[in-house]
Design a protein around this nucleic acid. Sequence first.
DNA 1: GTCTATAAGCGGATAGAC
DNA 2: GTCTATCCGCTTATAGAC
Lengths: 189, 189
Amino acid sequence: MKVNTRKEEIVKTAANLFKDKGFSAVTMRDLATAMGIKAASLYNHINSKQEILKIIIISLAENFTEGMQHILKSDNTSIEKLEQVVKLHVDITSKNTFEMASLNNDWMHLEEKLEYYLTLRSGYENDFRSIILEGVQRGEIRDVNVDVVLFSMLSTLRSLYLWIPKKEDLNPHELSDNLSNVLIHGINK
Amino acid sequence: MKVNTRKEEIVKTAANLFKDKGFSAVTMRDLATAMGIKAASLYNHINSKQEILKIIIISLAENFTEGMQHILKSDNTSIEKLEQVVKLHVDITSKNTFEMASLNNDWMHLEEKLEYYLTLRSGYENDFRSIILEGVQRGEIRDVNVDVVLFSMLSTLRSLYLWIPKKEDLNPHELSDNLSNVLIHGINK
DNA sequence: GTCTATAAGCGGATAGAC
DNA sequence: GTCTATCCGCTTATAGAC
């Protein structure tokens, strides 16, 4: 997210705090202190703490959904599509490490938009699964348990936000290649 | 964890609630209601909310450390050791799905025992890393980026708590085999 | 082992001045 | 856009009766 307006600055600062302690453990006073203002002043820019969470999570989730639709449209091989999915996660996560923590850990605290989020999420998982399944059916992917593959890849990709900040020397392109390599080709000689 | 005493019953119930909403969002009133008693009555069995978190996380973390020490002692191949690590995670997670959520998501809310936990955690990661490194040096494992392999395996294994409850048909032994297969041999034909 | 009553402080949020 | 002052419900935890 670009930080142009004061509101965006507040959301970005909040995401940074949420990443360390989680949504529930961060108070509006914590956020205000981090911004260098008083808690009451925050409400000149945002309506509620809940609104901040909504902005962080929903825009990111829609980002992933759009990216997936684009990948599904192509007529690449299944392996190539999986490589594109890895790239999608690396790209979005590199640009939104703070926000990814909330997407992963605080989505259950969404109120108004929870159902919408869950729809996007399960749609994304189904699309991911269909790529793997297609790969097995076409004979591009070994006949392994599809759910295990989906779970393993998704777990790794969803944890990227924890790892990318610690490996700033690795650029997104390199990281994406390394990850695809390990996730798709395995480690065994 | 076996639930024999009233205290253990409270800790187990708390872990179940923490799994869904996180430590910070669960109140002592929530916990009391789930136990069918009043909040004040909880304090006849436990000293504080913090103590509950400490019990859940520290015993589990020590469990993992012990298991890892046992694996390191053997003179198996590196691939076999990695298979044992997968089995360790599947076994502990199968028996402690609620508690694993807190271990993964709420360790930062530990107070007194935070430093101790972090020592166990980084020790475990170092041991895990050394197995992979040894495998590469012995020529048992492809010459891939060691950190990427560690990250990928750990991310998957640490997310098991989210997945095992949804796949009750899969027994731990089968799951462990499937996971080792995918993580070590990859998916590419 | 559980209850009622209550302390003491923190939580999100609003009103209205500057 | 930020402030001070304030509301008031909820938080963890304790005291003491049953």
